[in-house]
Write a protein that binds this DNA or RNA. Structure first.
Lengths: 139, 139
DNA sequence: CTACACCTTCCATCCCAGGGGAAGGTCAAG
DNA sequence: CTTGACCTTCCCCTGGGATGGAAGGTGTAG
């Protein structure tokens, strides 16, 4: 794969040129080579790195976390333990929310089944959410 | 429950006074009564409304969505259909992410089991995340 | 009376992850 | 040579959700 311009790279990976320059500006992408006229000129490794960034981001990591991971790697360390920790945390958070959302969804289905019975006489804001108060862990 | 100051309300519900004033400023909380000296003076209903807001927020609704829900209610309509829609969307989004996270977590466990075999010779950034590239739906 | 904590408004700032758009340079086609 | 699509830097804006701090008023304990 020959060197590509920022626009080609962006299009290939489905991101904007703005994002790429932004990632570079915060040190997430290294400064690329330039053509004599000053155009950014990306190699294959840059595409991989960007793909890595987008994947990690999609998995819920912040750009700062991703930067740390890349820094680990640049120091020749294995980032996997760190990634594992971050992801474990992500998974735990998500699991917690999911449990709540599932409870709520079940509640929701129940409410939908007898939707007609909840009318103007429902003095609260929303039975669905008020019910969630009761489900609140520790409330 | 007698009228309380903003500080007491905040402490009771575990939010900051700043947040309460902010919610009021964006129309999420009504303007409360004031003492002759101008102190905000909250009634029981305000605590409920704030609790409602925090609960809805915790469940993933944005302040705008919450505002809409409250507006529905203030117009005497049942917000539940709307809430149901919003929550269904939330649940769907979350389910999608959860599916990915679960795939990743399983992957993670597998990687942890043979962690020793991934060393400095791992030329990439992080096998965990690189593996996730392959799991990417449609990649 | 004096501390001191708490309240008021208002304006500024933060974080995150970029987006908008101006002013100007470059490259390939026709 | 011109046109149009790309590229460059630069600076400001967005939005969601607050947070900080200054300047000044209030309320209560000692």
């Amino acid at each position: 794969m020959l060197p590509v311009t920022i626009g080609e790279l962006a299009q290939r990976l489905g991101v904007t040129t703005k994002s790429i320059r932004f990632y570079e500006s915060i040190g997430l992408l290294p400064e690329p080579q330039r053509t004599p006229s000053g155009y950014r000129c990306y190699q294959e490794g840059d595409a991989e790195r960007l793909t890595f960034i987008k994947t990690a981001q999609r998995l819920g990591l912040s750009l700062d976390e991703i930067k740390e991971i890349i820094a680990f790697r640049d120091r020749g360390q294995r980032p996997c333990a760190y990634v594992a920790e971050v992801l474990h945390r992500q998974v735990a958070d998500l699991d917690e929310r999911i449990r709540e959302m599932r409870r709520l969804r079940d509640e929701l289905r129940r409410l939908e089944r007898n939707a007609g019975t909840l009318g103007q006489d429902n003095a609260g804001y929303c039975g669905v959410i008020e019910h969630a108060n009761a489900l609140r862990p520790g409330a």
